[in-house]
Design a binder for these strands. Sequence first.
DNA 1: CATGAATGAGGGTTCATTCAT
DNA 2: AATGAATGAACCCTCATTCAT
Lengths: 185, 185, 185, 185
Amino acid sequence: MGKREDILMATLDLITVEGLQSVTFAKIFKHAKVGSGTVYNYFNNKEELVNELYKEIGTHMSNFVIENYDVNETLYEKFKFFLKKMAEFAINYPKEIQFLENYSHSPYISEEIRNKPVPTMNEFFTIILEGQKQGIIREMNLMMCCQIVTGLILSVIRGFLNNKYPLGEVEIQQTIESCWKAIKI
Amino acid sequence: MGKREDILMATLDLITVEGLQSVTFAKIFKHAKVGSGTVYNYFNNKEELVNELYKEIGTHMSNFVIENYDVNETLYEKFKFFLKKMAEFAINYPKEIQFLENYSHSPYISEEIRNKPVPTMNEFFTIILEGQKQGIIREMNLMMCCQIVTGLILSVIRGFLNNKYPLGEVEIQQTIESCWKAIKI
Amino acid sequence: MGKREDILMATLDLITVEGLQSVTFAKIFKHAKVGSGTVYNYFNNKEELVNELYKEIGTHMSNFVIENYDVNETLYEKFKFFLKKMAEFAINYPKEIQFLENYSHSPYISEEIRNKPVPTMNEFFTIILEGQKQGIIREMNLMMCCQIVTGLILSVIRGFLNNKYPLGEVEIQQTIESCWKAIKI
Amino acid sequence: MGKREDILMATLDLITVEGLQSVTFAKIFKHAKVGSGTVYNYFNNKEELVNELYKEIGTHMSNFVIENYDVNETLYEKFKFFLKKMAEFAINYPKEIQFLENYSHSPYISEEIRNKPVPTMNEFFTIILEGQKQGIIREMNLMMCCQIVTGLILSVIRGFLNNKYPLGEVEIQQTIESCWKAIKI
DNA sequence: CATGAATGAGGGTTCATTCAT
DNA sequence: AATGAATGAACCCTCATTCAT
């Protein structure tokens, strides 16, 4: 019954609590209730395990965010949709978003995997670009513009995950509004 | 020249390039051109060394940002001043800001040190709070409001450090403007 | 075709190429195209497998050498016959002779099997002993005398296996002659 | 006091008794009365340790055999000298000769080191070659001729090491005589 | 203060062996 | 009889830390 899943989940759990730094295989084996050699039937080594975890979580988030996405909506609606979905993902899968947040810049994740373009993100870039063309969003470096929006919302999420404040409907609305104001004309 | 400084600088250099994960004492000794036992004259162990580094960099940034700060300026000017100084710090000390960014949430940094209130940050909180009282800044959770601003600017800086775009005067102005719009009424 | 044979042959192949040192069961399974558990239907463990291989190869060589042996020939003819047959065996079954050569003194082969008297060898001893009695072969320790002859021919074979020179009819004749001269009066 | 030597000696002892096959680092540490990490101050890994041992023993034997060698002696005297010295070395350093014997063809010893030409051997080759030129030694492949002599004497030594017979002055003389007869005209 | 050889607990990984299918 | 996923003891090796110099 899904040893692979068991191992990945145990790894995520442990990294969340103790940090990648101090997660040892011994802990993973114990937590996943699996023999020490079993991991190597699924992953060639520790690095591969963590990278695989990163990939799976990335895919999960991507799929979650894109679900029910309607291309034909107005630009603003699509913008809001994305941010709302990201907030929802964070609330539903705090460990996963925290993992992505913490290690998406870590050298432990292979450059190849780290820089793999995420379709969801590309879609989001397109929205911003379109907004600039329509004169709704301010002229500025496209990458920087994205960085502003995603940085803002993820920062708010991080604050929530660190128990600095609740993240209910109201706060989500306020944050999305902030994102929009930050880049609109 | 101070061995202590040599060790701290070597540590920062190595962490920047390879990540805390793979920085060993052996590498630090070699890079700092210091005998292996020497570290223990200054730091009790590796964790203490990293935490000390964290503290020193935090202080450095704090001092840098607060320098030339004028309490008597208008609220908006003070707001801009802080953000500009943070951007300048990032440009002048990329390794340091990157270190703070990457490890300020790591369990490797002791909770005590990580959560120590930074005077500079308190001053910034005060500005936001004052703005809300004066009806210039939107009513929202104070912590969240701060998270929005700092998250936004640091995200832009991160993008710059990752070579996604340049960070000249124009971009800094745009970013500060975005910060302000994101939270003003 | 017999799985048992497949396993033994795969083992011999691998040992020849990589040395007993680095031959693992995993490699044997793969090379023999056999499930990992299958070996245990035939051999109780790895040591037994290797010892069994040793035994089989020993028997094979013994049978090969004794084939067509004529007890009624002159002593010198019988002497030449044996040595010629050993050389032929080496040429026809290089992996097998190499295996015997390399591991006949290894502690990995159980003492019991290693020291089991080989009928063929006994026959050879008898020839030497007879030669000494007849005053054709020099008086010296019987074991040492055998050691001289077998060591000489096997050394020549080893050189051939290591590609130091060819081993044609001429060389075989020369070697046998050397053997004879080395021990005759 | 000579940890490096301690480790090399412990390794040789263990290999002699148990075979390279089953010599683990744990056993070496224990036998050498050395901390487990200490080995790595002298050797990068196990393979390097064994190869280094091989090299040192090879040098030792070479030096031993060449000692007191007189180039101006007659060819036959020089021939005898070498073989006598090899026998003496075997008697005085049985573990070392056994190690060389067993592993000089093992893939565990790097090809580079294994095939490094030994000056002593070259000198011996020269003697044989000279003998052939003078018409004292039979015409045959030079390498094979050497293989005959060295194989013969080493085989006798091996028999002695395996307690098959004593190896006193008489036996040594007989063996050297056999060597000479085996290749002379 | 400064050094670096020595240490050994603990890390990731291998691999002979088992057992349910 | 045949399989191969699962196992865990034991492997090699790393690295923070100590201590005699």
